[in-house]
Design a protein around this nucleic acid. Structure first.
Lengths: 177, 177
DNA sequence: CGCACCATGTAAGCAGTTACATGATTCG
DNA sequence: CGAATCATGTAACTGCTTACATGGTGCG
């Protein structure tokens, strides 16, 4: 699923501008998909050229004009075809886990820092998801996706808290030796 | 962490050829890192030019000659610096969860297929990890990373099995209306 | 006899990120 | 008064994937 398909997906839920498409993913789905303006705007331009979406310039008071995109029947058909074909890939690219493999080459204080940073990130993402779960403008199945992300993040959090002990080669000295 | 750093990491555990570096990640760590030959070989060549690794041509009987790489002190220092700097990013890019958001645009049979494919992938990865966990040639902290991956995969599996019901918009008709 | 494994490398291509450019409004 | 939000876009860059090229060994 490339970014063009993703734009078609969001637009099949309703009209939106490029800016709003980015926000759609940022607010809650950022855990499993991130896209920048540098990808979204060119994708929308191409989809327009291909006739899969149409575009209306909307002037606004007290803020910049925006371009609102609508999906066309050809776009909707393309999106369904894409959904029917795509293999459900789920790719993880974790510098964190890579760092853990090589934990022995880090000073203990740095190891603590890395774990703290990861826990912080997980907690932030969990908070994000909780907020997003209250949204009414997303399809019911999106809550399934959010629940999945939540379950997986929580499992990671619990794992770190329960097993960080195995990383410290030198356990905190019990008492006077 | 780019691929050059990763190669330094593997070589700081012991000498290896490009082929063996790829296998190191493939056998067990493929869940959170994948690299192809097209990345590894050029990375090793560059590290050699920079003096961070050295290379010995080793002829073998009944199989092709291989190039065994050794890390140099400058390479080891570079790797430690990299470990001390890198933010522990953990990025997920899931077509599967994206497809779930838009599940309403898929025929029910296709939805079943997608879920089955995902469950299959998870089970395969869990099996992979279990095998790798028995390896003796990896540092103890690598088992922490493997355990993390295992916990997270298991949580995903349980979530799908426990919550796939919410995806079917049309519950099996109770009885005659 | 074909396929998988061992083993290395090059070159083209692509998807996405980062940085740059612009500018009004609103909030602390 | 600086920062964040709203809003769109281009261009360079980069890091990785894919395909191509080569060739012996061993298994079913």
């Amino acid at each position: 699923m490339d970014i063009k398909t993703l734009c078609l997906g969001v637009l099949s839920l309703g009209e939106a501008s490029g800016y709003e498409i980015k926000k759609f993913f940022e607010d809650g789905f950022s855990h499993f998909y991130v896209a920048g303006f540098g990808s979204i705007y060119p994708a929308l331009a191409e989809l327009t050229r291909e006739g899969h979406v149409t575009c209306c310039d909307i002037a606004q008071e007290k803020r910049p004009a925006k371009k609102v995109y609508h999906i066309t029947p050809s776009g909707a058909a393309l999106f369904r075809r894409e959904l029917a074909q795509a293999h459900p890939v789920h790719r993880v690219r974790s510098d964190f886990l890579l760092q853990m493999i090589f934990a022995a080459f880090m000073p203990p204080s740095r190891l603590d820092e890395v774990l703290a940073l990861r826990l912080e990130d997980i907690r932030a993402e969990l908070g994000h998801i909780e907020l997003c779960n209250r949204r009414q403008d997303i399809p019911p199945s999106a809550h399934f996706a959010l629940g999945y992300a939540q379950a997986v993040l929580q499992a990671g959090l619990d794992y770190i808290e329960g097993n960080r002990g195995v990383l410290s080669v030198t356990p905190p000295n019990k008492d006077a030796p």
